[in-house]
């Protein structure tokens, strides 16, 4: 079997005395330190530098209003929403959003159908101030498709989800259970520079990435 052939070949190539491990190198002092007074501000700067969009909601009404603005003029039932208690609550209180947003079981929806929607609305695991990134998991944020197939991706997050540095992301992920089978770290909208190094947004993923940050997700509407 090739497995054994390959492994055997690798093992036999390694001389005995060379099989010693040096101490594990430290990544201390390699990265620029992130000691922002206001991680949300740093996140905003980094995200907008990547051509993502940043919005802030003080409370549930503001969040609802922002979502109404973002979905304006696209017609009825054009935005898919990840199943979540918060978003259900928002929907329950806004007739406008009820018309525009759709919250259904995503496992029953085929690709063709999902592709017709103008946007996907999800929560996230983490936001990264240092890099302006959004971290999503497939099990908790509506699967793999919702954040990549529609041309607009809206992320609804709260302040305590922000971590300062990219280094912290992996440390957090390592401890988390039930992330599902897929974690996607998103830094700005889809882009390409394959044609004469011209930057073009919206290659195959979303052309727009909007992050709505709120003080807390535990609010009354």
């Amino acid at each position: 079997m090739s497995r054994d052939v390959i492994l055997q070949s690798l093992r036999s190539s390694r001389s005995e005395n060379k099989h010693v491990f040096t101490s594990i190198p430290s990544t201390e002092n390699i990265f620029n330190s992130v000691e922002s007074e206001d991680p949300a501000l740093l996140f905003q700067q980094k995200l907008t530098a990547l051509k993502g969009e940043y919005l802030f909601a003080q409370n549930g009404n503001e969040l609802s209003k922002l979502l109404e603005n973002l979905t304006e003029g696209e017609g009825d039932h054009q935005f898919l929403v990840q199943p979540s208690a918060l978003l259900s609550k928002i929907l329950y209180h806004s007739l406008t959003l009820q018309k525009r947003l759709v919250q259904v079981r995503l496992d029953a929806m085929d690709h063709q159908e999902m592709e017709r929607y103008r946007g996907g609305i999800t929560h996230c695991e983490l936001l990264v101030a240092q890099t302006g990134s959004v971290v999503l998991s497939s099990s908790r944020q509506g699967g793999r498709r919702l954040s990549i197939l529609p041309p607009l991706h809206i992320v609804v997050a709260e302040k305590k989800q922000i971590v300062n540095s990219f280094e912290e992301v992996m440390q957090r992920l390592e401890k988390k259970k039930d992330l599902g089978s897929y974690v996607r770290i998103i830094s700005g909208p889809s882009r390409t520079a394959d044609i004469e190094k011209n930057l073009v947004l919206g290659a195959h993923g979303p052309k727009r990435l909007v992050v709505i940050l709120s003080e807390t997700n535990q609010f009354e509407v």
Binding site: S133, L173, Y182
Partner: peptide, 12 residues
């Protein structure tokens, strides 16, 4: 880039 737009980690 600091990070590319998409980094996917897939466990299965």
């Amino acid at each position: 880039q600091q990070l590319t737009s998409y980094n996917s980690i897939v466990w299965g």
